[in-house]
């Protein structure tokens, strides 16, 4: 993502604050599909964070944490659900211009909301 020129100075502080917050919404283990957002060098960090807040209703700190995960790790699982649910989210994300894919959840070795490595 592209950091902002004028507003991007407090990112480190905000990351520290975000790390202390919980990710309780994204813990249901038995739902089989993930919505993944991928990093790209164009989308503004602020915009991605705003979309996570306004579309998913995530708190500012949670949206920021997920956005930073996309930025630093290259991808983040930002929601999960049935195939139909995550596909509907993907349509919305493509509408916002975010690079979203859906994938079957790996069996227990990737915790949703905490990102991780790309599936082989």
């Amino acid at each position: 993502m592209s950091p902002s020129v004028a507003y991007g100075t407090d990112i480190d502080e905000r990351t520290k604050a975000a790390e202390q917050s919980s990710t309780d919404v994204l813990t249901a283990p038995d739902i089989p599909w993930n919505l993944v957002i991928w990093n790209d060098p164009v989308n503004l960090m602020s915009y991605v964070s705003y979309v996570f807040q306004s579309y998913f209703g995530y708190s500012e700190s949670k949206a920021h944490k997920l956005m930073m995960e996309v930025h630093k790790k290259g991808r983040s699982i930002v929601a999960h659900g049935s195939k139909e649910q995550v596909e509907q989210h993907a349509v919305a994300m493509h509408g916002f211009g975010l690079w979203a894919t859906v994938e079957k959840a790996a069996s227990g070795n990737e915790t949703p909301g905490k990102g991780g490595r790309q599936r082989g």
């Binding site: 596909e87 993907a90 349509v91 493509h94 690079w99 894919t101 994938e103 790309q118």
Partner: peptide, 22 residues
């Protein structure tokens, strides 16, 4: 393609089906 990306990383058939619908 960046505006209308594939919805699955390694599944062209699944991505195409999704395109047809959405």
């Amino acid at each position: 393609l960046r505006l209308l990306p594939n919805v699955m990383k390694d599944d062209d058939g699944g991505s195409l089906e999704f395109r047809q619908l959405t």
